[in-house]
Amino acid sequence: MKLKLTPTQNLCVGYLESGFELIQQDDQYFFIKGQRRQKVLPKTLNALVSRGALAHTEQGDYKLSDEFIEHRKRMQSPSKTKPTHH
C-alpha cells in the first residue's frame, strides 16, 4: 500500500471517515451527507484504490479498505511512540 496521498485524496478519505456516503449518479460520483454534496472525479477514486486506501466491493461500491483503516488507527494511536512493557 502506498501511503502517500495527495491533498485531494486525503480530503476524500476525510469525507468517508466523517460519515459521508459515496454515491454514483450516471457517470458522476458524489459524497453525500444530509444536504451537503461534493463531487469527486472517478480518477481520484481509482487512484485511491490503486494506493490501497479504498476497496471496490463486488456490489460496485467504494469503501475505506480494512488495511487503510488499520493504518489510520496505528498512526493515531498515542502508544506508537511509547514502548510497551509486559
Rank of each mutant, 00 (worst) to 15 (best):
Q38E: 13
Q59I: 01
K82H: 06
G14Q: 13
P78C: 04
K82P: 00
K39A: 14
S65Q: 07
F30L: 07
Q24V: 00
D26M: 11
G14V: 06
H56K: 15
P83W: 03
L3I: 08
P7C: 08
M1F: 07
Q28K: 14
P42C: 04
H71Q: 10
D61Y: 14
P78V: 06
R51F: 11
K33M: 11
K73D: 08
D26Y: 06
Q9R: 08
H86N: 06
S65I: 13
S18I: 09
K4H: 10
L16Q: 02
H56M: 03
G34L: 06
L54C: 10
D26G: 03
H85V: 12
K39T: 04
S79M: 06
L45N: 07
V13F: 05
E21Y: 07
H56P: 00
T84P: 01
K82Y: 12
A55E: 11
S77G: 02
A53H: 08
G52N: 07
L48K: 05
S79R: 04
K39I: 03
L41H: 15
K80R: 15
G19C: 11
K2L: 06
D27S: 14
K80N: 13
Q38N: 13
F68T: 00
G52F: 09
Q76W: 09
L48V: 12
A47M: 03
A55R: 04
T6L: 08
K82R: 09
D27P: 02
L54S: 05
L64S: 04
M75A: 14
C12A: 14
H86C: 11
I69W: 02
K43P: 00
F20T: 03
I23D: 00
Q76A: 15
K4F: 06
D66N: 14
A47W: 02
L11R: 15
K39L: 15
Q35F: 09
F31A: 01
K73Q: 12
G60A: 10
A47N: 05
G60T: 02
F20G: 00
F20Y: 15
P42K: 14
E67I: 08
D66H: 14
T8D: 12
G19H: 11
Q9G: 11
I32M: 13
P78K: 09
H85N: 04
P83K: 13
Q24Y: 02
T84S: 14
H86T: 02
Q76P: 01
Q25I: 15
C12Y: 11
L48D: 01
L41V: 10
F20Q: 00
L41P: 02
H86P: 12
R74W: 03
S79G: 01
G60L: 12
L64G: 07
T6E: 11
L22D: 06
R51D: 05
D27E: 15
T6Q: 05
K2Y: 08
V13D: 02
L64I: 07
G19S: 10
R36F: 10
L45M: 05
E17Y: 09
R72M: 15
S65F: 06
G52C: 11
G52I: 02
L22S: 09
S79L: 15
S18C: 03
Y15T: 03
H71W: 13
Y62G: 01
K43G: 05
A55I: 03
F31G: 01
H86A: 12
F68N: 00
R51N: 10
R36E: 04
T81A: 14
G34N: 09
R72E: 09
M75Y: 05
N46V: 10
